[in-house]
Write a protein that binds this DNA or RNA. Sequence first.
DNA 1: GCACCGTCCGAACGCATGTTCGCCGCAACT
DNA 2: AGTTGCGGCGAACATGCGTTCGGACGGTGC
Lengths: 212, 212
Amino acid sequence: MKDLSGKQAQILEFLREFIEDKDYPPSIRDIQEGCGISSTSVVDYNLRKLEEKQMIRRDREISRGIEVLGARGRRPRVVEIPVLGAIAAGQPIPVPTSDRWASDAEDTVSVTEDMVRGKSNVFALRVKGKSMIEDLIDDGDIVFLEPARSAVDGDKVAVWLKDRGEVTLKRFYHEGNRIRLQPANSTMEPIYSAPDNVEIQGRFVSSFRPAD
Amino acid sequence: MKDLSGKQAQILEFLREFIEDKDYPPSIRDIQEGCGISSTSVVDYNLRKLEEKQMIRRDREISRGIEVLGARGRRPRVVEIPVLGAIAAGQPIPVPTSDRWASDAEDTVSVTEDMVRGKSNVFALRVKGKSMIEDLIDDGDIVFLEPARSAVDGDKVAVWLKDRGEVTLKRFYHEGNRIRLQPANSTMEPIYSAPDNVEIQGRFVSSFRPAD
DNA sequence: GCACCGTCCGAACGCATGTTCGCCGCAACT
DNA sequence: AGTTGCGGCGAACATGCGTTCGGACGGTGC
């Protein structure tokens, strides 16, 4: 069931390379030529075999209707995340109110969908400066956030501190009638603030750190 | 040059959705039906216009030879990174000597190519435990490393400390006739070691932190 | 030997699909 | 009105491409 002949493996490999390269599936005759096969019927024959073995899917009656199945075939869904700007202590970030940022985003980053947990409307911020290093966020990191106005205890959120006039990323805790913003490092003291002084901008989804 | 008529925008949108959905480009008649156009020649006419405007690329004489260009069209190249295992203080990591790990990798992660800088043979490790939190690497993080046996000053490398019997991620500095492994946090002291006691496993490329 | 089966070959068949061509309606000019 | 250009229409045309069919070649079992 799983093992396939040399020619079938060759065809499968050719399929992957062709699709990767050209962005559309090859025709029967493309495969024929690319694999050095002398007849289209041989290709058809082996494609049927591959289909039986669940390696590919074919849309009959449709030109180039071949689809490679399996982990290497099904391309992971890629989403474009708008990078809205930089976040640094002392500087506000422009937080969108509408849900269409694609136009005013200065930059975008493409990531596989599982990196943002399939959430929608995720946006990204480029971290500037070392000011948040105690939150395990380094200079140059990219943080992915989902829009949020509220948080539950323990959430990592980007909050706008009205009195300080700055945005920071901390863990969020309700504590009596005040808010505790907890850094992730034991050597740092938490920030306490009145609830109406903090304005939640977004909830942490994930982060990425490129090389230096 | 940039603005396109309503019908052209409609066709372009249809192209994207169709390709996203089916994994192969539509035929002229697919577009005709999908956009409610009464003649194939109209589709052809507008496709030529789109091609003039550099919005798409057509492979003449080839069925479904349409390719959407631009940021939203050209899919970012996705590479599969083998996750070789977990890294935690006190435990060695199995570092491959050959360059074919795909078979023995327990897991893989798909990321867009720019996340690993287009480097080849990159592998990934899942961070276990909080033991490296001072290097801005948290529990659950995924670090991407490229195989390396040497490093230049300042590189973040995964090193095997023979005397301690553990692997850790630090910045690497030659300092006289010893090696300094520098954490990224000022409250932590660097580790000094003899050159023959450290064995470099891989060089840090990037890291990713999923949500809690 | 013979029959059977998996694989391959070459050619023909026929639908699917891209391309071309003449014509029309409409708006903006002269 | 006449002209020009753009966008659309429908049909015919030419080719791309999937499919089918008769047959060949090499194993394997009887």
